[in-house]
Design a protein around this nucleic acid. Structure first.
Lengths: 215, 215
DNA sequence: AGCGCATCTTTACACTGTTCAGATTGTGCG
DNA sequence: CGCACAATCTGAACAGTGTAAAGATGCGCT
């Protein structure tokens, strides 16, 4: 009769769904203290469990973080989907929306974002993580293909577009959560809609206006 | 008679130039283990000094890291200057070179780069750090001004260009040291010159080709 | 029913950053 | 010149960290 509620307290010796509970607790711990001050013992304490309980499920702290990053990519893709669904049918508008979702995610889960894209504590050879990260990239390449009519995997110019757009979205996202873009004071004073349009314009600068060779 | 050599061993009780020595040791420690596994005690051990010796000079570990980040911006700017000096007189070529220097730095000092741009252990209110970071940004705005003929600080469209270029360079740099761009297999097989040209093209997509209003 | 095994706790250890009292040395002031 | 003071560094101690090893617990299967 184990409830699926993850933050529950268990009076029984066995927890029931400790794995999910630990992931949830780890995520709030991560967003609270950041990766650099992340504490496994603190996570265990949140779930009212001994410090070594996570060991069996995740091996060690990095294992837990790796699993957390994997799950992060699902949220990441969902957040992009949400933006895309509101974007109409124009392929470029969809791509821009996807980029805005990229930035949305970074703003909503900055520490998780950093864990996924800039942490060394994550096991990049982990199959789940690799697959999740791959799915995110494939989303991008399909947008480019819809726009350019060529698959980036077989066309270098289209691949260049993909990397350019990725770089722009990623850079804007990373600088945003570092609060570096506040330097442009006019950005802070902008409405959400204007800011979205501003970012969209920049993101779309990544796609080349004319494919030179279609190989 | 204190030599200015920083990695020396002192037989005397007082060190002589412990501050610089600690910074040097901290930098190699940082590049060796990354921020997430950075250890102050290990730094002290490198200089053959007690674990509490750094306290007086930097307050605490974050203080040391903040000083390290400040110094990092100097190297950062120098690395961009080096690229620019080889770039000829065309303002766009200079801007692209500056962006390549941005990426050069990230590749050469990945952990320091992350400390400067993505760490929470750094005191952003620190005057030295703020000034150093500001200088780096001013370098960018001057490039844009040289190209567009308008100061980004007084023209929003020029500022948009600055942020776009910054986002692109930063995104490419960050993704590069995360080894994410290896997905585009053709990038790995490229010569340095081709890769530079490839990145330059992408970076220059950030500058708008025609200023709409010159406010 | 009861055995096996996954799950969780307890204990212990090495390591971390920081504080505090004391040792050592350079420096300025008389 | 001498001496007290201030700056600098050490040593010991403390709370906190991750992880390994051994023991406790109870779920599920035969």
């Amino acid at each position: 009769m184990t409830s699926s509620q993850s933050t529950q307290k268990r009076s029984t010796y066995h927890h029931g769904d400790l794995e999910r509970s630990l992931l949830d607790a780890a995520e709030t711990e991560l967003e609270t203290n950041g990766i650099e001050r992340f504490s496994l013992r603190a996570v265990a304490k949140r779930v009212s469990v001994s410090p070594s309980a996570p060991t069996h499920h995740f091996g060690n702290t990095d294992g837990l973080l790796t699993a957390l990053a994997s799950r992060g990519y699902s949220k990441f893709i969902k957040m992009q989907d949400k933006r895309e669904s509101r974007a109409g049918d124009d392929p470029k508008a969809k791509l821009a929306a996807s980029g805005l979702g990229y930035i949305d995610f970074a703003k909503k889960h900055p520490a998780l974002f950093r864990l996924m894209f800039a942490s060394e504590r994550t096991d990049k050879a982990n199959p789940n993580l690799a697959k999740a990260a791959n799915a995110a990239f494939e989303k991008l390449t399909k947008h480019i293909e819809a726009i350019q009519g060529v698959d980036p995997h077989t066309n270098q110019i289209a691949m260049a577009d993909a990397l350019a757009v990725w770089g722009i979205a990623h850079g804007l996202a990373d600088l945003t959560i570092s609060e570096r873009l506040g330097r442009a004071t006019f950005l802070a004073g902008m409405s959400d809609e204007d800011r979205d349009e501003f970012f969209s314009d920049i993101i779309l600068r990544g796609v080349s206006t004319h494919l030179e060779k279609k190989t």
